Amino acid sequence: MSTPFIPDDGEARKARTARATYFSPQAGRAVTAPSVASARFAIGDIVRHRMHDFRGVVFDVDPVFANSEEWYESIPQDLRPAREQPYYHLFAENDEASYVAYVSQQNLEEDGEGGPVDHPSLDMIFGEFAKGRYPLHESMRH
């Protein structure tokens, strides 16, 4: 059975193209982003970088690039990801260190290890690792 065609009365198109402006502390400026964005990962998910050997826990999501221009320009042009996609703040780790990372959606994938992440800041925001992810502390939910 096929899905019936529903004419677009313009409201759906407006919703898809509507933009909102918010202040980004990382960028130090206002950033314009789609009112509705499709993030592949959620807060508490464990992800892995596609090209670099690190994994991390998502603790915030920007609907589009919202960091400084210096940060963006420091990425080699042939590797520079598009601005118009979600960017994730991660409590990240590799074999040598724990740190905070800012990564585009195109450079992340689901983590295949399935185990916890060892980052010293996790317990500030999240509860104990359970069922492959980290739940937010009740005090962090709204």
Rank of each mutant, 00 (worst) to 15 (best):
A15F: 15
L122I: 09
A39Q: 07
E138L: 14
N107K: 09
S104Y: 08
T17P: 06
F91E: 06
P34Y: 01
A97H: 15
D95T: 03
K131M: 10
H119D: 08
D60M: 03
A39C: 10
G44L: 06
F59K: 10
E11S: 15
H49D: 00
I43S: 04
V64T: 02
S74W: 09
D111R: 00
E113R: 09
R50E: 12
E69K: 13
A42R: 10
A92W: 05
K14F: 12
H49K: 00
V103T: 01
R19A: 13
A37E: 03
S38M: 15
F54E: 02
R83H: 04
V100E: 15
R48I: 05
F54R: 06
V31G: 04
N94F: 04
A42S: 10
K131C: 14
K14A: 09
R80G: 05
P76R: 13
D62N: 00
R55G: 00
A15R: 15
R40Q: 02
M140L: 10
G115C: 01
V57H: 02
D9W: 14
N107T: 07
Y22S: 08
T3K: 09
V47R: 00
M124P: 02
V117P: 03
A66G: 01
P116E: 04
A15G: 14
H142S: 15
D118I: 13
F65K: 01
P34Q: 01
Y72R: 09
N94A: 05
H137N: 12
L90K: 03
G56K: 06
G112F: 07
R13H: 08
E70V: 12
V47Q: 01
M1P: 10
S104W: 06
G56T: 09
S68G: 05
A130Y: 07
F126D: 03
